[in-house]
């Protein structure tokens, strides 16, 4: 664990260095243009400082994004406006609620489908190919249509966005659970047979516990996919807010810093959700005596 801290830190540092250099290169034309019109000659250091502090840069520098993130979260909490419409906490909460809603239903659907597929040969052979085919369809691209149709059916907006998240998150769960429920070896299955265990008993005592590591691995993939679904769905329901709506609004008005801060906020949210599931995984597997 400690062995990889230094390499990871240096890779991250390299990314930040590249980011700063790139923002010099990308913002230079505008800085030079501004200086020419003002009739000022910029020294190199002035030029670099200018590229790192523009209002609408092509690529904002990391500290600008960090400042914007702080201004729309921590600073607003201090002013007691944590839930105002301009705060990223509010937007993040909207994204989070449809993500979680979709994730819960997607996981439930995925587990049920997997149980059916494992126990019924007919379902395995007729449904499984379609589950796989469903993912080669870039469904996320038609999110706007699904959202609009559901909204016109008087479905609640959170649910409409959750449906997209659900569609994206059920697939990894189905695939992982089918693998997990089938993971007990022939020896173990034979053991259950010698005990004259019924199908249900085999399922509860052997198949389900054996599938836990697989389930958690797919839950991590599923929640990340679920968040992506929620963000894209918000592009078409932008009046409700959400991180996706922040990105769209930023792209309309050229507010690059706003886009980047929404992007980083989404990244932090994704990392946090995956980390929480990782924690639950570690605790659960440890109590089950399966910790690696």
């Amino acid at each position: 664990m400690m062995r990889s801290v230094l390499p990871v830190l240096s890779v991250v540092a390299a990314i930040f260095a590249i980011w700063y250099v790139a923002s010099i290169g990308l913002n230079k034309p505008w800085a030079e243009d501004k200086a020419r019109r003002a009739g000022v000659e910029l020294s190199t250091s002035e030029l670099i400082l200018d590229t790192w502090s523009q209002k609408k840069p092509r690529l904002p520098a990391p500290h600008q994004v960090a400042a914007e993130l702080w201004n729309t979260t921590g600073a607003m909490v201090q002013q007691g406006r944590a839930l105002s419409k301009r705060s990223l906490i509010w937007h993040g909460w909207i994204t989070l609620s449809s993500t979680l809603l979709g994730f819960v239903f997607g996981t439930g659907l995925g587990i049920l489908l997997a149980i059916g597929i494992v126990h019924s040969r007919t379902m395995d052979m007729s449904v499984m190919p379609w589950v796989i085919a469903s993912q080669t369809v870039p469904i996320i691209a038609i999110a706007p249509m699904i959202v609009v149709v559901l909204a016109s059916l008087q479905v609640d907006d959170v649910v409409a966005k959750g449906v997209i998240s659900m569609y994206l998150s059920f697939f990894p769960v189905v695939v992982g659970m089918v693998k997990g429920l089938r993971s007990p070896g022939a020896m173990q299955m034979d053991q259950m047979k010698t005990w004259n265990a019924s199908r249900a008993q085999t399922f509860w005592a052997l198949r389900l516990p054996a599938s836990a590591p697989y389930l958690f691995a797919s839950l991590k993939v599923g929640i990340a996919a679920s968040l992506i679904g929620a963000v894209v769905a918000e592009l078409s329901l932008s009046q409700d807010g959400g991180l996706g709506a922040r990105m769209l609004g930023g792209s309309y008005y050229g507010q690059t810093i706003q886009i980047w801060s929404a992007l980083i906020a989404a990244a932090i949210l994704a990392a946090g959700l995956v980390a929480i599931i990782g924690l639950i995984q570690r605790i659960t597997l440890k109590r089950m005596g399966m910790a690696a």
Partner: peptide, 28 residues
């Protein structure tokens, strides 16, 4: 060294909602 550093970072980035980069790249 790079391998140990890049794998965790790459895994992290692969899980991010990269679609969000779209408005920025369209601008560029």
């Amino acid at each position: 060294f790079l391998q140990r550093g890049l794998l965790p970072v790459g895994n992290f980035v692969a899980a991010l909602p990269i679609v969000g980069m779209a408005p920025i790249l369209v601008m560029w």
